[in-house]
Amino acid sequence: MVVLSEAEWRARESAHRDRVRQWTGPHRQRRHDGRKHPVLDFLFTYYSFRPSRLERWQPGFGVALAGGEQFLARRGYTETGDGVALSRETITDARLRTAEFVLGLLSATASRQPRLGCFGLHEWAMVYRTSPEQIRHSGWPLRLGHAGTDEVVESSNLSCTHHDAFRFFTPQARPLNPLQPERADQVRLEQPGCLHANMDLFKWSYKLDPFVPAELVADCFDLAVRVRELDMRASPYDLSELGYTPVRIETPDGRADYVRLQREFAEEAAVLRQRLIELCRDLLRWAEGAAPDARAQVHEPVHR
């Protein structure tokens, strides 16, 4: 059991809260003002982790908090000889199944080579041959107009491997994708070059709540924000009013830029994916009564 002094965990709690409020604060203000954001709202609507939960610090399992009596008000925390910590009783059968699924999915994804060069065409396929009122972000113009957008889709090779992106393709775009990924294909098809698979590391981190240290959740969210920005910069929408410079994937230079950024994100995501894999393995060992690896419980946030 790793033991954090009260000074240590309170400092981490404060640093975490300050870090994530750079995203949760503006989101709350936009919601208060009734304003939508075509890029960042996705992180709080498609994903189901509330801003208040993202702000809430937790140490993860195998960590005792000296002077941490306030955590006893949370479900699953108990008093130990070293301080307040998560109890093994929090590991229900449902949570074990989640950890096993996440471990299997992320291990399978990590075993594959990144497939680069999809060029973010999933966003284009979501508006292919639609009428203006059917466009998801109807308040924002298409850079190339409707005809130009359709032409890019028709002159490109769609290669989406991610079910949760593919399911939003228009009916006319679906047959243009050689793969027809279903939910049941997720473990078989997910690959580490996919922007959506890398954004989803945030989802898998909070699905393992409360066993994941808050810093790791925040690292995954940080990555998801930046990947989402690339996702929409490469989209057919003109978001220059919001300060997003387009990645013009309809041009050779734009496609080269996209592949370069996609590769960089794949490398960054690989580190976070491995951290989650190791955490799942250790959590399953802990559930069986083994002591968790103390090294795995010391999660320092990633700073760039």
Rank of each mutant, 00 (worst) to 15 (best):
M1P: 12
S5H: 06
W9P: 06
R10M: 02
S14K: 15
A15N: 05
R19N: 10
W23C: 01
T24G: 06
H27W: 14
H27E: 06
R31Q: 15
R31V: 14
D33S: 13
L40K: 13
Y46D: 02
Y46A: 05
F49A: 01
R50L: 04
P51V: 07
E55I: 09
P59F: 03
L65W: 07
G67C: 14
G68M: 11
L72P: 07
A73H: 03
E79G: 02
G81R: 12
G81K: 12
D82V: 01
L86H: 02
T90F: 11
I91V: 13
E100L: 12
L105Y: 03
S107E: 11
S107L: 05
A108K: 03
T109A: 07
A110G: 03
S111R: 12
P114S: 02
R115Y: 00
L116S: 03
G120T: 00
G120Q: 00
H122I: 01
H122L: 01
E123F: 02
Y128E: 09
P132D: 09
I135T: 12
G139W: 04
W140N: 04
P141R: 12
E154Q: 14
S155H: 11
L158Y: 07
L158Q: 10
S159G: 01
C160Q: 06
H162R: 05
F168W: 05
P171E: 08
P171V: 04
N177W: 04
Q180Y: 00
Q180V: 00
E182R: 13
A184G: 15
Q186G: 00
V187I: 14
R188E: 15
Q191F: 11
H196M: 10
L201M: 10
W204V: 03
W204F: 14
S205A: 15
Y206D: 00
K207S: 13
L208H: 06
F211T: 04
V212A: 07
V212W: 08
A214N: 11
L216C: 04
D219I: 09
F221D: 03
D222P: 03
D222N: 11
L223N: 07
Y237K: 02
Y244T: 02
T245C: 07
V247K: 01
R248E: 13
T251S: 09
R255E: 06
V259F: 00
R260T: 11
R263I: 02
R263D: 12
A266R: 04
A266P: 08
E268Q: 14
A270I: 09
V271L: 10
Q274L: 13
D282G: 14
D282K: 10
D282M: 11
L284Q: 05
E288T: 09
E288K: 15
G289Q: 04
A291G: 02
A294S: 15
R295K: 15
H299I: 15
H299C: 15
H303K: 12
